[in-house]
Design a protein around this nucleic acid. Structure first.
Lengths: 223, 223
DNA sequence: GTCTATAACTAGATAGAC
DNA sequence: GTCTATCTAGTTATAGAC
């Protein structure tokens, strides 16, 4: 609950100050949403001066954009890396749908279960990606995912040659929703029955997600 | 962009004032999140006095709780109504999985496409249900959905007798995520390719969701 | 690069007149 | 029930000393 606090007198290198601000802001934005966090909340938690935010990020929204970028960028880079590996491995043949799905799902779930990092913060911030109001943040989030989705859509189209592009569009949305919401659920552990907390691990969730979404993507079109 | 504004001098009945505040707050909370909206924003948009919020709802968070309750309650009531109808129709037999799913999915999608009401607001507010920070709001949302999920979980268990309760728990999460995220997508139409906006209708989305989630729920457990 | 100090404004809440 | 007026506290942002 108590954010790491420091005597205001202490001094840090500029790079360290920047880092401390980003870390504190990430935690607070994830917890309360950008609108409900003041720059004073952030500077207090980071143990730096109020003016530092203006110096390093110009405005509060500039800071928010950086926070979300720092969260999304490595995640999506890893996804594209895994997708490349899957396609290379398949050679000239069609890649397995399950492998394409795993390239999308694994990086996020593993990051969400990595208790060496602040996984709780990651999970909540992930949730905010979908609901932060129309600011620089929304624009950044949209831009970064658009690129990713285009690349994966092509892979899905190849793995599911019988599916029309419109049908595929919606099914990919459903897949993203399932992934996203299960991550959020892990973040809000109050919602999890005690029995299930024990058996909750990254590998299990990845496999469950792959099985569910692969079946959904392959379903025959009419009811 | 410009909220409906009124000369401050105009007078309203108490019930009307209450209603106007709820409507304005709903729109603004959906758009920006509770934390980023001031009570002055709300009273200006509603054309009522600042003190009116305190009189009718005691605090800003009391108002927020009312707003979310007013959104969720009729939706979940309708879902339970449809589920009752499905089970009655099945008589002693197992209900069709697709029918149970439709009881869950139809009310939300139809409400999200009802352009006589402010469907945009509903879709965004739905998104906020998952991400509003730990306040009275989160408690209200959780409580209302817990009741619904318990009832539907039982129905799913009966329709899918081979699935273990743990497996079912996760698959229902995936289903809820798919539903939820596709609603949000309809709200943020910028994300929709122009071609798809034309063919977007409630019936089509309901059928797509039912087909996808039914296949996911029925998938054989191991990969 | 970092801090103090402060400008200029907005927040939620309420007392008391009407 | 509704409004005006006001309190106290907190807001972003910046100028200028160090």
């Amino acid at each position: 609950m108590a954010p790491q606090q420091e005597r205001p007198g202490e001094e840090h290198s500029p790079a360290e100050t920047r880092q401390r601000i980003l870390d504190a802001a990430e935690r607070l934005f994830a917890l309360r949403g950008v609108g409900a966090v003041s720059i004073r909340d952030i500077t207090q938690a980071a143990g730096v001066n109020v003016a530092a935010i203006n110096y390093h990020f110009k405005t509060k929204h500039g800071l928010a954009a950086e926070v979300f970028k720092r969260c999304i960028d490595p995640l999506n880079a890893r996804r594209l890396e895994l997708l490349d590996a899957v396609e290379t491995r398949a050679g000239g043949k069609l890649p397995e749908l399950e492998d394409v799905l795993e390239a999308m799902i694994r990086p996020a779930v593993e990051r969400g279960f990595d208790h060496e990092q602040d996984s709780e913060t990651f999970l909540k911030l992930t949730g905010r990606c979908l609901s932060e109001p129309n600011t620089e943040v929304e624009e950044i989030v949209r831009a970064h995912f658009e690129k990713l989705i285009r690349r994966f859509d092509a892979a899905f189209l190849r793995a599911l040659p019988d599916l029309g592009p419109e049908e595929l569009f919606w099914r990919v949305k459903f897949m993203a929703g399932a992934l996203h919401y299960s991550l959020l659920t892990c973040g809000k552990q109050k919602n999890l029955p005690v029995k299930l907390r024990k058996t909750l691990d990254a590998e299990g969730l990845i496999q469950r997600l792959v099985v569910f979404t692969a079946a959904g993507l392959r379903a025959s079109v009419s009811r």
